[in-house]
Design a protein around this nucleic acid. Structure first.
Lengths: 160, 160
DNA sequence: TATTGTTATACTCTATAACTATA
DNA sequence: TATAGTTATAGAGTATAACAATA
């Protein structure tokens, strides 16, 4: 099957923004899930890689350091994330989810997933498998540049 | 192959925002392609459905009427879009691409596509086919709510 | 002197509310 | 009175520049 990279790019460019806007609008609309997409991604990343530094986080999420700092500020203020000075190098900071953060992530994830799942339920198993496979193909291509080999946290303190 | 709607939703939620951020960052970074994602989508929609009203456009793009109005304002000021009072109903407005708008769209598309294509080139034909197929599956699910049956324009004036 | 993160400041995008013009 | 669109205003999010603290 001949599918050029350009055809693929065009398809991605056509569809991804529409999907994204649906996700964003849905997150904004849902009351009690008071979290936006970058915040959601931040919680998700910290869930996977507890104890990373601010720089690592910013690199992955794709924000500048000041923006990331501000975003984290908000999450710390809401006690969803803990931020501690790293004892080994006092310039660095160690970020982790609190219990509340985990709960908030689970709730957002559940809600947004449920919303998407509702729409995806219209498809056949085979079609869904195709989508999952496509996501798995896209993932490394668009994440690799940022994903850090995130050393597991020296400690997963939970200041909830 | 058993793939639940929820598994699929999770995959989408994990990957789509990362892809989207890459696209957005790329568009912002690229000098001479002075256009953001909603503007890009607006031009693309007007290219397909010339002569639509502001409301139809806002509905599709997923912005409120005032936001859409402002966005279009900018495009009109830059002579990428023409905006004319519709003679049949003087409250309505008729939007279309100008020649400059078409050129700008083509340029943005070409650049961003090329950028994405560069990354997608690493995949096999089969893998790319999978991605295209997945996009075709997602498209109606996330676009249908908004896509208007956009009456073709009564006139495709080009005030370039 | 270089690195990690924060603070100060400004700009863009988007929303809600109030308004104008037309039907 | 209802509809299409615009203007006024405000808030969120992000960036760049300047700064502070530590290495």
């Amino acid at each position: 099957m001949r599918v050029s990279a350009q055809d693929t790019a065009q398809a991605v460019l056509d569809v991804v923004p529409a999907v994204m806007r649906t996700i964003r609008t849905e997150m904004r609309t849902h009351r009690g899930c008071d979290i936006n997409v970058p915040q959601f991604r931040t919680l998700g990343y910290l869930n996977r890689y507890s104890g990373v530094s601010l720089s690592q986080l910013a690199e992955h999420i794709g924000l500048t350091l000041p923006s990331m700092s501000k975003l984290v500020d908000g999450l710390v203020a809401r006690k969803l994330v803990s931020r501690q000075v790293y004892t080994g190098d006092r310039r660095r900071v160690t970020l982790a989810l609190t219990a509340r953060g985990r709960a908030s992530l689970a709730s957002s994830l559940e809600y947004t997933e449920a919303y998407l799942a509702e729409r995806l339920a219209a498809l056949s198993d085979t079609d869904r498998a195709t989508i999952v496979q496509a996501m798995q193909l896209l993932d490394p291509i668009f994440r690799s540049e940022r994903e850090v080999e995130a050393k597991p946290a020296p400690q997963t303190n939970d200041a909830s």
